[in-house]
Design a protein around this nucleic acid. Sequence first.
DNA 1: ACCCAGGGTCATA
DNA 2: TATGACCATGGG
Length: 218
Amino acid sequence: MTFLAVHDALFAAYGPQRWWPARTPFEVMVSAVLTQNTAWTNVEKAIANLHAADAMDAEIILHAPPPRVAAWIRPAGYFNVKAKRLRNFCAWYVERGGGKTLRRLDTAALRHELLSINGVGPETADDILLYAFHRPIFVIDAYTRRLFSRLRMAEGDESYDTLRGQIEASLHREARGKRELVPLFNEYHALIVRHGKDVCKPRPRCELCCLAARCPAA
DNA sequence: ACCCAGGGTCATA
DNA sequence: TATGACCATGGG
């Protein structure tokens, strides 16, 4: 079973996911921080509050009193921590000249800078790289580890970058010349999250059998 | 009432 | 390097 085949099975089952649901690349970045260990429906409420306050802007968030930012993003949970993280991110974003300037950095440099921000870890950085900057980075999350671990295509306890490197290398080989990597990675991560929400619980080890009509748990 | 959600940081050993 | 505590809302 190839990584490409797993993607195709998921795509056949769920169809296009249309990630990342956001109006602008900056909104992708903000929501990537807000969605840390948080249900997306809660992030949507926080995003709506920011728009209602006309505050979906790095300068505004950066210069607003932290308690006010916390109030805007309250539904997303961890609001004090995340207000701080959003502030750190916006300080970097403004300091580095915004999206226009950042867009010119190569992927490795951009990733290194994102990881230097307090509050931006590997998954959040990769969400931003893939969905805001359209770089060919495969996002690893808990669903990804669980899926490939159960399919015996990964050990499950690899380091974040090791697993990401292995999957990226495999998909490079399997998709070379036939598929664009960015759209592939984009859809793949979204499909894994979609699948992860309702993978059959009675027989979780089968994973992909849930996609078949004959799955006993379906 | 309990569990989880589209993680990351920090203190401790 | 490897655990554990902590952050906090909202839906099932």
